[in-house]
Design a protein around this nucleic acid. Structure first.
Lengths: 197, 197
DNA sequence: CCTACCGATCGGTAGG
DNA sequence: CCTACCGATCGGTAGG
């Protein structure tokens, strides 16, 4: 019913959809649920979007863009693997905590994309992960990180980072910066090669 | 069509359901999909189960039971927090990797439980997490773990562990034991208080 | 375990 | 953005 001043109706649909998709899942959210939450008739949604899946597509790809933009400055920069990984972790965590709903949809409901969108999504995700994998591989090569296998380490890294949306509470007593830094510390400490220290 | 010798039709339904729920999600899996995969008519499913949700319930609670059984011997034992956490992590990871499908359903689709089952599920999960939280709190108190806040640490711990179902491949080149131990090492190393070393 | 079927709900369209 | 509506599919039951 109430529409914020800066957002169009389409943005509002996207926001409400993100929230409902996160809470109930894409498949379990009907267009009727969505319309009711916004306060319009179900059929009216189609004046702004072309299909339920197109809505999912937009959510997934716009948050993907945020992830890439967040790591771009780090990619450009040529610091050591440790500093680089630390910045990348913080950047990644910030994107998630600043967009919990969209991040949850991105991390789960992408499965419901189909055809070329699904293919494109997987390609992007792989590219994104490669950035982290390379930093880790460099760190291992330079002896700063223990060698647990870079593939395994990336998986562990994203495992630790990607579950945040499940428990992060924007109104809780930990702020984004604190979470990002603390989480980064724990993981990096876990990766560090301290057999030699 | 083909029914394994040791399992009843009901077990078979449960197994196929676990797999389909994991792959497509509970809401996106229809009883018709399930019946087709088994090779019987949709209506015939109801000779063995009472409803779609009861199937979800059985999956969620039987894996919950496995989690509790896995940590029971560790609970009984009174070793130091470090050893205890290590064993608990390994036990937890083993349950997940030995039951990837059920674990995925347990970790995600429990949301679709309702009424008293949902309440009971949440209570059990909280109890399970408390076991880990206490070990961590002890470790922090004794100075073996850094103090990042035990609530935050448990969240980080489960974040790192619970995503495994998403990438673990039973036919891959890492076996369960290796994954469990390596993952445990990384996390515990991350928790360790090495400012004093 | 099957045939036959139910009411409810789904995503989406036509036409204004 | 709404009214009116479509064909398809849903979980599940009756009765054998």
């Amino acid at each position: 019913m109430v529409q914020s001043i800066t957002s169009t109706r389409k943005d509002q649909i996207k926001e409400v959809a993100q929230n409902m998709f996160r809470e109930r899942g894409y498949a379990a959210t009907s267009m009727r649920d969505l319309a009711a939450a916004i306060g319009i008739e179900p059929a009216s949604l189609y004046s702004h979007i072309s299909s339920k899946e197109s809505l999912l597509k937009e959510i997934c790809f716009s948050i993907a863009k945020e992830f890439f933009e967040a790591i771009a400055p780090i990619q450009a920069n040529d610091s050591d693997p440790l500093t680089k990984l630390e910045s990348a972790i913080i950047a990644h965590v910030k994107v998630i905590t600043n967009n919990v709903d969209a991040a949850a949809v991105f991390l789960h409901d992408w499965r419901h994309l189909s055809g070329p969108d699904l293919t494109k999504f997987k390609r992007m995700r792989h590219e994104y992960e490669s950035f982290f994998r390379e930093i880790i591989a460099d760190g291992v090569k330079q002896g700063v990180f223990r060698d647990a296998g870079d593939k395994f380490m990336v998986l562990t890294l994203f495992s630790a980072l990607n579950w945040i949306y499940d428990w992060y509470n924007p109104t809780g007593n930990l702020n984004v910066e604190e979470i990002a830094v603390k989480l980064g510390e724990i993981i990096i400490n876990g990766f560090k090669n301290n057999t030699s220290s």
